[in-house]
Design a protein around this nucleic acid. Structure first.
Lengths: 129, 129
DNA sequence: ATGACTGCAAAGACTTTGCATCTTT
DNA sequence: AAAGATGCAAAGTCTTTGCAGTCAT
C-alpha cells in the first residue's frame, strides 16, 4: 500500500526553485519563474508538487499574503516578517518559544512566529512623500 | 473626508457573536449562528463587517484553517494552538517575543505566535483505535 | 434628504480535480 | 506493462463586488 515517488524533472525544478529563492514564493511565482525554461509546465503541476512537498515536510507554508499562500524551502526553525504594504516576506532568527499551558490544549508539533509591519523599503517610500 | 459609521443592529450582532464565541469562528460560522435569529441576514454582510472590524482593529484574523479565515474578538496579546486534525483553535498565554535583527527588515507593528499539533480530544480518539 | 448598510446574485481569485496521455521503473 | 506524473480545462471554495432598495441620522 506504499505510494511510490518517481523521479520527475519538473518536480525537481520546482523544488530547486523554491529552495534557491529568497523571496518565500507563491505557486504563481514559481510557475512564472520556471515557465520560460519549461514551456510545457502547468500551474496544476506546481500546485500538486507544492502540496506534496508540504506533506513530506520538505517545504513549509509561511502564510497567506494577499490571497496567495507563500512557501519556504528553508525548514530550519526561524521566524518571519511580513510587510503589510508590499507583501514582502523576510527571514528573522529563530525565537525560543515555550508555553506553560501547552499540555492543557494538546501536543505541539510545530510553531510559527510571524511579525507584521512595514518593511524598510516601504518606510522609505512613505517618508519621501 | 471622514467615513461615518452608522449604527446597525446586524453589525452589532455580528460583533457580539464573535466576541462571545470561544471557538475563533469563521465567517460562515458566524452566519450560521446568527441566521436563525436574523433570517434576512446575508453572508455578504458578515464578510463586509468582518473586513471592517479587522481594519478597525476590533477583531483579529487568527489564520486560515481548512481554507477559511478564523477570527478572534479577543485583541489582547496571546498565542494560539491550531489542531491539524479537527481544526480547533485554542487560546494560549501571551509569549514574550523579541528579535534582535528586527530593524534590519522593518518596523514591526504586531506579532502572531501559533502552535500547530494535535489537540487532546483528537489524541484520545486516535488512542482508542 | 443624504449617505451608509444590506440582500441578492454575479463575478473574482486561488486552488483542486477528472481524464487522457506521457514517463519512469 | 504497471503505476506515477502531467497538461488542460472544468469544477470547487471562499470571498468580494455591483446595484438597487432600505435604514439611520
Amino acid at each position: 500500500m506504499e505510494r511510490v515517488t518517481r523521479y520527475s524533472p519538473k518536480r525537481q525544478a520546482i523544488l530547486e526553485c523554491i529552495c534557491s529563492a529568497d523571496c518565500h514564493p507563491s505557486a504563481e511565482w514559481v510557475y512564472a519563474m520556471l515557465k520560460p525554461q519549461i514551456p510545457d509546465l502547468s500551474l496544476a503541476t506546481v500546485y500538486r508538487n507544492l502540496a506534496r512537498f508540504r506533506e513530506d515536510g520538505v517545504v513549509l507554508a509561511v502564510g497567506n499574503v494577499d490571497g496567495q499562500e507563500r512557501y519556504d524551502g528553508d525548514t530550519a526553525p526561524h521566524s518571519h516578517f511580513i510587510c503589510r504594504e508590499c507583501g514582502k516576506v523576510s527571514d528573522l532568527p529563530a525565537i525560543e518559544v515555550a508555553v506553560p499551558n501547552m499540555a492543557t490544549v494538546g501536543k505541539s508539533e510545530g510553531c510559527s512566529v510571524t511579525f507584521y509591519g512595514c518593511c524598510n523599503e516601504c518606510l522609505e517610500k512613505t517618508a519621501q512623500n
